[in-house]
């Protein structure tokens, strides 16, 4: 009884709003996926540099990155908003309320976490893994690469956390994306909207999808870690 009810409800739901829903899911994955890829491209090398080398200003840089780790999403959104608003320095690009600017805001959120966790993971392996590689005949560059490979679990944890932060935040994408239907609406901003409008079922379905996708993404990333063995 309950089952058929649920099934028919789901059927109705997806036939009515399935198209919109897949658009929302697709955009969420696109925006947060791009943000985390850019964040990793920036954050992992920077983390490696911080973890492997002692240079003047390193301590200060680390402290700034740690501070940015707890940057509230709406604040990141505000900064990006002001930069890309019509009167802002990059206002001429006219990309406010479009997906690219949402990506930029999420890059701001994901990169510090990826950098900090990568650098901590690499620094923890640095002394022994680096020296061991050297004793076996590695050049400095080869040894550094080995250290990064040895720190892969920590780096992946950083990337996963970065993705989680981007994928789950609402404040930044709301501000800079504007939650425009069919254009900049993502999972989190939809949940806010649907809840406000009293569409709790839809909000819950969105929430479950969010969780499910996070699960899938982390499983895929963990798989990468496993396959590195051997």
């Amino acid at each position: 009884m309950v089952n058929t009810d649920l099934l028919s409800w789901l059927w109705q739901f997806f036939s009515q709003r399935g198209g919109e829903l897949s658009g929302i899911v697709g955009l969420s994955l696109m925006v947060s996926g791009s943000a985390v890829i850019i964040g990793a491209v920036l954050g992992v090398p920077l983390g490696a540099l911080l973890g492997l080398k002692k240079f003047p200003g390193r301590e200060l840089l680390l402290r700034i990155i740690y501070t940015l780790m707890s940057l509230p999403p709406v604040l990141a959104g505000l900064v990006v908003y002001l930069i890309f608003a019509r009167s802002g320095p990059l206002g001429f690009l006219d990309i406010l309320f479009t997906p690219p600017v949402m990506v930029i805001a999420q890059v701001l959120l994901a990169t510090p976490i990826i950098t900090a966790l990568s650098s901590a993971a690499i620094a923890a392996k640095e002394k022994l893994a680096m020296d061991t590689a050297r004793t076996l005949g590695a050049s400095e560059r080869q040894a550094a690469w080995m250290v990064i490979k040895e720190a892969r679990t920590g780096i992946l944890a950083g990337i996963m956390t970065g993705f989680g932060r981007a994928f789950g935040e609402v404040g930044a994408v709301m501000l800079v994306g504007g939650n425009v239907r069919y254009q900049t609406r993502v999972l989190t901003t939809s949940i806010v909207l649907e809840t406000r409008q009293g569409n709790y079922e839809f909000a819950i379905v969105l929430g479950l999808i969010l969780l499910l996708l996070s699960f899938v993404v982390s499983s895929v990333l963990l798989k990468i870690d496993d396959s590195k063995l051997r």
Binding site: A129, L229, R230
Partner: peptide, 19 residues
């Protein structure tokens, strides 16, 4: 250096296979 090899006091194994 490649004509030598040192086994360090704190032996470190890379997290891969023995091979």
């Amino acid at each position: 250096r490649r004509q030598m090899c040192m086994v360090l006091q704190n032996t470190y194994m890379f997290d891969t296979s023995v091979y």
